[in-house]
Structure formats: C-alpha cells, structure tokens
Amino acid sequence: MVVKVRIPTPLRRLTNGREILEITAADLGQGIESMETQFPGLKERLCDEEGEIRRFVNIYVNGEDVRFLQGLATSLEAGDEVSIVPAVAGG
C-alpha cells in the first residue's frame, strides 16, 4: 500500500529536507522499517530501545492518534496519510 508520511521539521535533516515521503507498507511498524531503510537513523528517533513509540512522539493515521488505534500494528491502506508530530504544550 502506498501511503504518504508527513515529516516534521526536526526530522528533515535525516530525509534530505523532504517534507513528504511515500512508502509502501501494510502497517505502521512496517512503514517505519521501510523509512529506516531509505533514511537510516529515522527509526531510533521515533522508537525507544524497546521498539515502542517514544514518549514525546505522536503519530497519526488520517488524523487519528495511533494510540487510539492499534499503535505500531495499525494497518495502512493505499492513500492513507501518516503524520509525525512532536508533542506540544497547550491551552
């Protein structure tokens, strides 16, 4: 499945400045592996030593936080949009 991934500014140094990546993957975990193959170093930015999504990283599939879906096992369909967003303060 070809999906689009939106890369936030702090990671673009690793993606040669690219804002959108197109990847082929059946689920989010595979998607991260596929990005890691293209741009080594990306995975350790997103995932901790246990392989879980880091505390201050939010990943959305079509606008929904994957922690409300199946986390890294969240399946991806052709045309889905994945967005990686650092946590921000609020109010």
Binding site: R45, V57, A87
Partner: peptide, 8 residues
C-alpha cells in the same frame, strides 16, 4: 524539540 529524541 530535541532533534535526537524529540524530548522538549
């Protein structure tokens, strides 16, 4: 955001 670990 920290470019390395995304920490604040």
């Amino acid at each position: 955001v920290c470019e390395f670990c995304f920490g604040p």
